[in-house]
Simulated scan of single mutants.
Amino acid sequence: MIADITLLRADITKVAADAIVNAANSSLLGGGGVDGAIHRAGGPSLLEECREIRRTRFPDGMPAGDAVATTAGLLPAQWVIHTVGPVWSTRDDRSAVLESAYRRSLEVAGELGAASVVFPAVSAGVYGWPADDAARIAVETVLGSGFDGAVSFALFSDAMLGSFRSALAVQNRKPEGFRAE
Rank of each mutant, 00 (worst) to 15 (best):
98 L>H: 04
160 M>L: 08
92 D>V: 13
134 A>F: 00
121 A>P: 04
91 R>T: 13
158 D>W: 00
105 S>A: 15
138 A>K: 01
123 S>H: 10
80 V>E: 12
59 P>I: 06
150 A>N: 11
66 D>H: 14
113 G>C: 14
77 A>P: 07
79 W>Y: 15
96 A>E: 15
116 S>C: 05
99 E>A: 09
91 R>D: 14
148 D>I: 04
85 G>S: 07
76 P>Y: 09
86 P>R: 08
131 A>Q: 03
142 V>Y: 02
111 E>N: 14
97 V>Q: 12
77 A>L: 11
101 A>W: 08
63 P>S: 13
94 R>G: 09
128 G>N: 12
58 F>H: 14
61 G>L: 09
66 D>F: 10
89 S>F: 06
123 S>C: 06
118 V>Q: 12
91 R>Q: 13
92 D>Q: 13
146 G>T: 07
67 A>D: 03
91 R>H: 13
89 S>H: 05
159 A>N: 02
59 P>H: 08
84 V>M: 11
133 D>A: 04
92 D>K: 14
86 P>Q: 08
87 V>G: 06
133 D>C: 02
157 S>M: 03
137 I>D: 00
62 M>S: 10
93 D>M: 06
160 M>D: 12
129 W>A: 03
158 D>Q: 01
132 D>N: 00
85 G>Q: 07
91 R>F: 12
68 V>C: 08
99 E>C: 10
86 P>V: 09
134 A>Q: 00
68 V>L: 07
79 W>K: 12
98 L>G: 03
111 E>R: 15
83 T>F: 09
136 R>K: 09
109 A>Y: 14
69 A>F: 13
68 V>S: 07
121 A>F: 06
62 M>I: 09
127 Y>F: 15
56 T>H: 07
113 G>P: 15
156 F>R: 05
108 V>K: 14
75 L>I: 11
104 R>G: 04
143 L>H: 02
161 L>C: 01
153 F>S: 00
140 E>C: 02
68 V>N: 10
133 D>E: 07
116 S>V: 06
125 G>I: 12
121 A>E: 05
150 A>G: 08
146 G>D: 05
152 S>P: 02
135 A>T: 00
107 E>S: 09
110 G>Q: 15
86 P>F: 12
58 F>Y: 15
159 A>E: 06
108 V>Q: 10
151 V>L: 01
135 A>F: 01
109 A>S: 13
151 V>G: 01
72 A>G: 10
148 D>R: 14
115 A>E: 15
97 V>C: 09
81 I>V: 15
65 G>E: 03
94 R>V: 11
150 A>F: 08
83 T>V: 07
118 V>P: 13
116 S>A: 05
109 A>Q: 12
156 F>T: 04
150 A>R: 15
70 T>E: 02
112 L>Q: 13
136 R>M: 03
